[in-house]
């Protein structure tokens, strides 16, 4: 059996570790996962008393789901979706002031890519959440997808509800789910080009019309609150 620490590739930030009490229940869950799928657990994160993240390799994706449903009684399928960790190339907030198309400014260097809880090595991740209606514990599972092969096993044989979520994820991110029974678009037209939820898919409404929201932080007339003053210049 693996040690808990060996599975922890990314330690939580120091300040969180200091104040967060240990969460034995979720640590026990992690050790159960480690015992079952071994080295496939590549990262974990615990928010004590609240939530649990486990990152696994994509080869173990289906196996982990089966283990979670049948052995850990995580019978409730919550959701499945994808994340594109690449920072948006259209400016940090997609605000019009930094718009490269309308204002013709040079594309700026995007900030370095940073992944979230439980870490990550690639741009795209699939993440899903399952939950136990008996013990009221849930776990968010993540898996990295390499850029050259955006495919992963389908969860439909285990969680039937993954069907529509995977179809949505397929059309929105372009992931392929191996073994999905009906991999066609759910929302988008069949001949839609591009993957809307990827960060490099431009939101055209923002390209043609400046974002009005960015100026909304000026202090309200008659407001006695000065806290907003420092940010009201933009």
């Amino acid at each position: 059996m693996n040690q808990l620490s060996s599975a922890d590739t990314e330690a939580p930030p120091a300040d969180q570790q200091a104040e967060a009490p240990r969460d034995e229940r979720r640590e026990a869950l992690i050790s159960l996962f480690s015992a079952e799928i071994g080295d496939a657990v590549v990262g974990t994160h615990i928010r004590a008393g609240d939530d649990l993240w486990i990152r696994i390799t994509r080869e173990a994706w289906l196996e982990t789901a089966r283990f979670a449903q049948q052995r850990l009684r995580m019978d409730f399928f919550d959701f499945l979706s994808g994340i594109d960790w690449r920072p948006s190339p259209y400016g940090r907030d997609m605000d019009s002031q930094e718009d490269i198309v309308v204002h013709g400014t040079e594309p700026k260097e995007p900030p370095a890519m940073a992944t979230g809880y439980a870490g990550g090595d690639t741009r795209f991740q699939v993440f899903a959440r399952v939950f136990s209606t008996a013990s009221h514990e849930g776990v968010t599972l993540k898996a990295d997808l390499p850029d050259d092969d955006l495919s992963i096993d389908s969860w439909v044989p285990v969680y039937a509800g993954a069907n529509w979520h995977e179809r949505e994820c397929h059309e929105m991110y372009g992931f392929t789910f191996n073994g999905h029974p009906y991999p066609v678009n759910l929302y988008l037209p069949g001949d839609f080009e591009g993957f809307p939820l990827r960060k490099d898919f431009p939101l055209l409404a923002r390209r043609v019309k400046p974002w009005p929201g960015i100026v909304d932080v000026e202090p309200m007339p008659g407001s006695d609150d000065d806290e907003g003053a420092e940010g009201g210049d933009s």
């Binding site: 919550d78 959701f79 994340i83 420092e230």
Partner: peptide
């Protein structure tokens, strides 16, 4: 006044009229 949410991930679900509704928010 200007709300900047610290980096992190959070999932909160509530029992909405139609069933469980949750938001998985990732902040940078």
């Amino acid at each position: 006044r200007i709300i900047k949410v610290p980096e992190g991930e959070a999932y909160v679900a509530t029992e909405n009229p139609l069933g469980q509704m949750g938001y998985y928010v990732i902040s940078k």
